[in-house]
């Protein structure tokens, strides 16, 4: 997993609620067996029309937002399908942080597996960022160590994050390696379970 420490990047506004993972990466891009190369499918139906031509009005197609590293979006971002292709596609496109008032649970978990930082701010803070992101200067700083977002105008917003998740994100730690350190505890649990629920052992 890529570590996330501090990011100075352009922020692009997506002022819609309930942006689901089908919109983030439509199904035709899920037939891959790779994690890489999914940027081409990101927000596909928002970025391109039925003939595959770019929709010039869509925020990520506008020249002033090319290379944006942060998205600010409406409530309940990432709802719907559990597809991890959603954070893979965002990361492959260059997005390292999404800011919203709330995230769907599975998407939120998937972000933390990949070094994509989901930041939850208060509704008025998200509204302010959204407005500023629409303006001429839209450079923000997201600092995980101090848990702050600095808006283009210099307003500073604090965000909460689980301390263990923060530590893993800062260091880019592999969850499987960490869990395997508890392999003995897993062995013991399995032995006890085999005695208490023997019918699960010969399914």
């Amino acid at each position: 997993m890529q570590p996330f420490t501090r990011l100075d990047a352009q922020i692009a506004p997506l002022p819609l609620a309930n942006i689901d993972t089908d919109q983030i990466i439509p199904k035709q891009f899920l037939k891959t067996v790779e994690r890489e190369g999914l940027a081409k499918g990101l927000f596909y139906d928002l970025r391109f029309d039925g003939e595959g031509r770019e929709r010039p009005e869509f925020v990520l197609n506008r020249p002033e937002y090319k290379g944006a590293g942060v998205l600010v979006a409406g409530d309940n971002f990432g709802c719907g399908s559990s597809r991890e292709h959603a954070p893979w596609a965002l990361m492959d496109f260059g997005i390292r942080c999404v800011i919203s008032t709330s995230f769907a649970d599975i998407f939120n978990n998937n972000c933390f597996q990949n070094g994509l930082l989901p930041v939850v701010l208060k509704p008025d803070e998200v509204r302010q960022l959204m407005e500023e992101a629409k303006g001429g200067n839209h450079l923000v700083t997201v600092d995980l160590e101090s848990q702050t977002v600095v808006s283009p105008s210099g307003a500073k917003f604090h965000f909460e994050i689980d301390p263990r998740r923060k530590a893993k994100m800062l260091n880019g730690l592999d969850a499987i390696g960490e869990t395997l350190q508890a392999a003995d505890a897993i062995d013991v649990y399995e032995m006890k379970r085999a005695l208490a629920q023997p019918w699960l052992e010969d399914a």
């Binding site: 597809r83 991890e84 599975i106 978990n109 597996q113 990949n114 969850a175 499987i176």
Partner: peptide, 9 residues
């Protein structure tokens, strides 16, 4: 439901 990294886990 879980994501693919969790499937691997």
């Amino acid at each position: 439901g879980i994501g693919t990294s969790e499937v691997e886990h």
